[in-house]
Design a binder for these strands. Structure first.
Lengths: 124, 124
DNA sequence: ACCTGGTTCCATGCGATGCAAGATACCTGG
DNA sequence: CCAGGTATCTTGCATCGCATGGAACCAGGT
């Protein structure tokens, strides 16, 4: 990528991902266990949340450390064995919690960005 | 605070704010200069983005350091003088940049949270 | 048997950010 | 003079995303 044009945009997008990536990964595991590279590709396909292995694997380690996911090894027909990550009850609860919080947060940001903040009309 | 019930929610909300707070503050200055406590109250009123002075003032220092805002002192009729923050051209450009990036990000998260990820229908 | 390439996993060190807690200064009123 | 509200700022900590590098397994060609 060329440095210079996308710097500000990359910076904004980078900071945006903080804290959201965790729950998007949990959401991907909602209906089926997933393995690392699979999650990575799903995030890439989304465009706005594309990231790297150096981000995903430490994240998965944290999720496992906090008992939000459990892992099982599974053989692959084309390559080394894969570690599949599945939601625990705590993980599902955390995802539900986030699903409740997210709309309020999203709407708050939308309001700040789209609502004019008139200098007139204030009661002073 | 009790570390147990509201921890997860507070944690999710805390991480969500990362990187977004900066641009919401810039958005608040879009139509009028603002001073610290004023910004703080506006964020409080939004609910989802409520934060503390210990977050806002270092943030404002960074914005000033990066030439995204300029500041002017102004007397107050009821208390110490206020430092008003106003957008520079760079600040306005950064805000516009974020305004362009935000919808894609927001929609991506919405998609992850609401789209079912079927375990069937895969070609395997 | 060797070696190249693709797939999959993981660890380390850095920079950036939000936050709790504390410190400082100004003004008004008793 | 002292108390309380307003307003600003600093310090130290914890967390998170990311670039970089390393390791292991399998298939195919020479």
């Amino acid at each position: 990528m060329e440095p210079g044009d996308s710097t500000k945009q990359a910076r904004a997008a980078t900071q945006l991902r903080k804290g959201v990536l965790e729950y998007c990964v949990l959401a991907l595991m909602r209906d089926r266990p997933r393995y690392g590279v699979e999650l990575l590709h799903a995030l890439e396909d989304s465009g706005a949340l594309a990231t790297s292995q150096g981000t995903v694997y430490p994240l998965l380690s944290r999720l496992r450390r906090d008992d939000l996911v459990t892992t099982t090894w599974q053989e692959s027909t084309s390559g080394p064995p894969r570690r599949y990550y599945a939601l625990t009850d705590s993980g599902r609860a955390a995802l539900d919690e986030f699903t409740r919080v997210w709309p309020g947060f999203r709407n708050a940001v939308d309001t700040f960005l789209t609502t004019p903040h008139p200098s007139t009309g204030d009661l002073a």
